[in-house]
C-alpha cells in the first residue's frame, strides 16, 4: 500500500468520523415529532449536565432547552427540535471548551 492510498484512507475515515460526530445536525432533514423531540431533549439534557459538571455551562443553554420543552408541550415540534438541537450543540461545545482549556495558562 503506497503513501497516497494510506493518506486517502485516512481522509475518508476522518471525514466519516466528522460526519458521525456531527450527525445531530441532520435535524433539518428529520421529520420532527414527539418521539424525535423526546430523543433530542434527552440528549440535550445529558450534554448540558456534562458541561455543567465541569463548570462550563453557557448562560443561555438551559433556557434554550427549557423553551424547547415548552414548545413541545405546545405541540410545536419542528421549533422544539431546533431549539433542543441548538441546546445540544451548545452543551457539546461548552464541554469541548473545557477539554481544550484543561491546561490553560499564561501566554507570556
Amino acid at each position: 500500500m503506497n503513501r497516497f492510498s494510506l493518506f486517502s484512507i485516512s481522509v475518508v475515515l476522518l471525514s466519516w468520523n466528522l460526519c458521525w460526530a456531527a450527525s445531530p445536525a441532520a435535524v433539518d432533514n428529520v421529520q420532527c415529532n414527539e418521539s424525535t423531540f423526546s430523543q433530542y431533549s434527552k440528549d440535550a439534557d445529558e450534554a448540558l449536565k456534562k458541561a455543567k459538571d465541569v463548570g462550563h455551562e453557557w448562560s443561555e443553554t438551559a433556557a434554550l432547552i427549557q423553551s424547547a420543552k415548552q414548545l413541545a408541550a405546545d405541540k410545536h415540534f419542528e421549533e422544539a427540535c431546533k431549539s433542543a438541537h441548538a441546546g445540544l450543540l451548545q452543551s457539546r461545545m461548552a464541554y469541548r471548551q473545557w477539554e481544550e482549556n484543561k491546561n490553560a495558562g499564561p501566554r507570556f
Binding site: S59, E60, Q97, E100, N101, A104, G105
Partner: peptide, 17 residues
C-alpha cells in the same frame, strides 16, 4: 484560581486574561 483566570469560558470563548 490561576487556571480559572486563564480559561476561556462562555459562548464568546473568552478568558479573564
Amino acid at each position: 484560581g490561576k487556571h480559572f483566570f486563564y480559561t476561556k469560558r462562555g459562548q464568546l470563548n473568552v478568558s479573564c486574561a
